[in-house]
């Protein structure tokens, strides 16, 4: 069943036509990845889903309801959380305060306590550093924080924008393992990545975005074997 359904989305930055009629479907429980080169429109797609950008044409349906013209701050109440590009942590707030902001849309004190324990068991490093100013964390720790912060909102759909960016290979593997674990716990994931190989290895399905349009869509297995994908995104001849 389609959880998120983008139909013929056109998004503009001023006069620049950034998304040229893309349609994407994410089913409940899936990991779907969006791969493509820099400037292909991956981040724009996520910003359109979260309401930071409004599409000029098209619908964004979440469980059947069109949310394309909702305000960004209402979207999280619908169950969508995002780990933004470049992590987007609040550098001057402490680790705990960042997690508090993730829980801004929640009201239950008892759930907050168990949620924060869950994040700390998922990322023990954050527990050690919970009173530290977030700007002083390493890149990997900041990625953990951004992910933990998004999970504090109890999303049913998690959008992740380039979680592997700027991280050492060991940390990239850790983050991808975490994504799989989060998915097993019932969170649907839409993953934007430049690291196509890693993304396709954990995803169920994938879309290839080029110059603001979807040029290919298939199961992750099939995409990995596709000659154009292998050439353009997996670095194989």
């Amino acid at each position: 069943m389609a959880m998120l359904d983008l139909t013929d989305i056109h998004t503009y930055y001023g006069n620049i036509h950034a998304l040229k009629g893309i349609s994407i479907t994410v089913n409940k429980g899936e990991i779907v990845t969006l791969i493509g080169a820099n400037g292909a429109g991956k981040t724009t797609t996520l910003r359109t889903i979260t309401g930071l950008l409004k599409p000029r044409v098209g619908t964004v349906k979440l469980d059947g309801e069109d949310i394309a013209r909702h305000k960004a701050n209402d979207i999280v109440y619908k169950g969508i959380a995002m780990v933004p590009e470049g992590r987007g942590i609040f550098a001057r707030l402490t680790v705990t305060e960042n997690l508090d902001m993730g829980a801004y849309s929640r009201n239950s004190k008892t759930e907050y306590d168990s949620d924060i324990q869950r994040i700390f068991s998922l990322f023990p490093r954050l527990k050690e550093r919970r009173n530290q100013i977030a700007g002083t964390l390493s890149g990997g720790e900041q990625q953990m924080l951004a992910t933990g912060r998004a999970l504090m909102a109890h999303p049913t759909l998690l959008l992740m924008d380039e979680p592997s960016m700027g991280l050492a290979p060991v940390l990239v593997e850790l983050i991808f393992e975490t994504i799989q674990q989060i998915n097993k716990e019932g969170v649907t994931v839409l993953l934007v990545e430049q690291n196509a190989l890693m993304a396709l290895s954990i995803a169920n399905r994938g879309y290839v975005l080029q110059s603001g349009a979807i040029v290919l869509q298939d199961s992750a297995e099939a995409l990995k074997k596709d000659p154009t994908v292998q050439k353009a995104y997996l670095g194989m001849e």
């Binding site: 309401g51 930071l52 305000k71 960004a72 701050n73 999280v76 933004p84 609040f90 508090d100 902001m101």
Partner: peptide, 24 residues
């Protein structure tokens, strides 16, 4: 307070603050 922390969050990054559900 929750609002006070939200103020500091908005001061740093309005877009990300909105993604947290904060009415900027």
């Amino acid at each position: 307070t929750k609002t006070g922390k939200a103020m500091r969050a908005v001061a740093e990054d309005k877009d990300v603050a909105a993604l947290m559900g904060i009415d900027v």
